[in-house]
Design a protein around this nucleic acid. Structure first.
Lengths: 134, 134
DNA sequence: TTCACTGCAAATGATTTGCAAAGCA
DNA sequence: TGCTTTGCAAATCATTTGCAGTGAA
């Protein structure tokens, strides 16, 4: 995906393609599925000699999420992960390292639970926690 | 469950039954399954005229969790939830209110995913997020 | 008595926000 | 030019920690 595409993608999402948004979007979307924290993306940008403040990385990730370009992943603990794959899928989480990656086999629920009165299911998250084999 | 039982339960878990631990344990375990945050449990203790510092509530919840009396539940966002039901089961999460409760129908995965080389599954968390029906 | 536990306040870590300066349309 | 973004530093929120005082055995 080149710079023009990214700019278009941002415009399409209603986001002005500023230098920092374009750079971050390239980092996020040039490879396949990615799972990043704000901190990691910030470091990565720094490595690429892209000057972006950490605050802007946070703001940008939130804007991308609101725009539907990213999805937040629910993990207990302090850090928030963002996933470039916004379609419904589940995750492995390596407890020791904090790594997060997609489950590729077609894991799904045997039955969809019944939502309580007046409520509807907005999303189902499945996290499979992994530990080293003893 | 009365005070004596609670004290026994704590001793059984290797925890000295101090006043604050006993009080908190009573709040947690006297009813059925509960899902609390440190903040909420602290308020609840205050309402019962139990003097406990918030720091102690945090420490106690962590100790109970380590002792296997509680289970931490993974929800995205800032707050940590503790569940008095430590057996494998899944949750509904009401996005608007932050409420958390058990899924009672027997929802489970259609197939257990294959853990990667050298890893084993330590736990599977399923969170069904609920929104108000439009 | 002795060592674990508690409370307070200060420290921490992740994330957000206010506001002036800079950038895009 | 005019409104949007950015960067910085300060603010916030949930949680943890250091340490002196308190309590259980």
């Amino acid at each position: 995906m080149n710079t023009l595409d990214v700019a278009g993608k941002l415009r399409g999402a209603g986001l002005r393609p500023t230098r920092q948004r374009v750079c971050l979007a390239e980092l996020l979307f040039r490879e396949g599925d990615r799972h990043v924290t704000a901190e990691k993306l910030h470091e990565e940008a720094a490595r690429d000699d892209v000057r972006v403040s950490l605050a802007t990385v946070y703001n940008t990730l939130n804007q991308f999420t609101q725009a539907g370009l990213l999805r937040e992943v629910a993990i207990e603990g302090s850090k928030t992960y963002f996933d470039t794959n916004t379609s419904g899928h589940h995750h492995f989480y390596v407890e020791k390292t904090g790594e997060l990656f997609d489950i590729t086999d077609g894991v799904c629920l045997a039955q969809t639970p019944q939502a309580p009165e007046g409520m509807e299911i907005s999303r189902i998250d499945v996290i499979v926690r992994l530990a080293e084999r003893r």
